[in-house]
Design a protein around this nucleic acid. Sequence first.
DNA 1: CGTGTTTGACCGGCGC
DNA 2: GCGCCGGTCAAACACG
Length: 479
Amino acid sequence: MDRPQDMALLRLRNPIKEVDFFSQNGRQDVTEAGAGVASPKGHQEEEADALARGGASVNTGLYLLTVNSQASQTVVEEQKSKHKSQFSALRIELNRVRDENRRLRSMLDQLTESYTALHSQLLPAVQQKEHEIYRWQDGTTSVARRGESSAHQIMEHGPARMRMIHGNSEDGVGEHSSSLNIISSDRGIIPSAETQLSQVDGSSENPNLMQETSSTAAPSDLSNRRERVSVRARSDAPMISDGCQWRKYGQKMAKGNPCPRAYYRCTMATGCQVRKQVQRCAEDKAVLITTYEGKHNHPLPPAAKAMANTTSAAAAMLLSGSTTSKDSLVASANGFLHPYILYDSTMATLSASTSFPTITLDLTQSGNPIQRLLQRAHPTVSPLQMPFPIYGLPQKLPSMVGPQTLQHGPRQQAVVDRVTSAITTDPNFTAALTAAITSIMGAPTSTTGVGGNNVSSAGAHMVPGSPRLPKPCTTFSLN
DNA sequence: CGTGTTTGACCGGCGC
DNA sequence: GCGCCGGTCAAACACG
């Protein structure tokens, strides 16, 4: 901080140390010392000057008042010069601020210009891209279907293969938050699952959602909710394997269902609060309903981790469409509207029929459920172009396949489509999605999340042992 | 013997 | 207040 104005201010505060009341030189010194604003000399330099002038003056430390008219005149001059120096210091400061302001303004102008230029370039490019892909998709659906044959190849390679698709995913739970929280698109931001759940908690701008939540619970009670995710999977196995370790702690006969409901607790880490319920659907016993509650306080195994990444965005999208009315516009957390995410009530619903709102993704319909959902949500956009990392493909594949992948060549898109189809048509995707959902949902009580996995703003409000309150419940189901 | 499962008891919320 | 129901606990049991 060697700015001249600072030095000036500093000097103003310093008392005049050496005054020769009897010499002209001395008075000059007073003036210089007081009005030394413009003087570049340092304090030590001044002292050296004074010594060089041979002034054996003594600083008494007192501003003596004498009847000497000459001395009083000196004092007046001194005050004048003081004011002068203050004024000049202020002026210098003002000039400095003005310069800074000017500089910032020019920077802002430059930024605005750059943004405008980029935006004008981006818009036609995006439009053209969408148009090309839409045309190409019409003629290449069969290619995607052929890709189904490779589904088992991918799933059989298991976590390693999926890790490759998703890039690095070694740090466990934390990554899920990153993949969830910032899902940018050229049309805005797709909110994370947690954001959406916090919307469910009553902060949403979506009137439908507000209406629904307000009808189920008082706003003050919403903070105590716990998120739940239910995955419906068509499986013969008693329990789908989702990559986590579970310990059964209870079983109950639920009313209206001949099949018992089993209760499991995560045992991958001590104190992990995640629980799940497994029950067969009363209507269709082939459908296994797995409901997860809570958030893991430990890194997930690769099997669960990788697929958690790949499907988190899908869940986020589903949650972003969480309303009870069909085909309604979706308001994201940042206020953007997503008219293209028209949610399919046959696959994803948010229901308030129970004491807690329930988002239901019914993927037990025929065909590729995920692709159908995505197609519904973005009819003119291929998986490659999804504004969020569906299965991790749109963002990761280019780096794997090559930089030209995004040049929307039909061949590269066929590869992407094939892999996408392969993943989504495999029955094991059920397990993967289960793992994903488990990791997505934030546990209300786990304040000891690993790696700052505090993705759930809604979860942070929840209190263990609180009275049973309406809970947001997301239901997914698969073939 | 350690770990996981089974199963009846218990608890708390909710509706009548 | 009472009963129902969902969820949890914990002792007993099974298994490797």
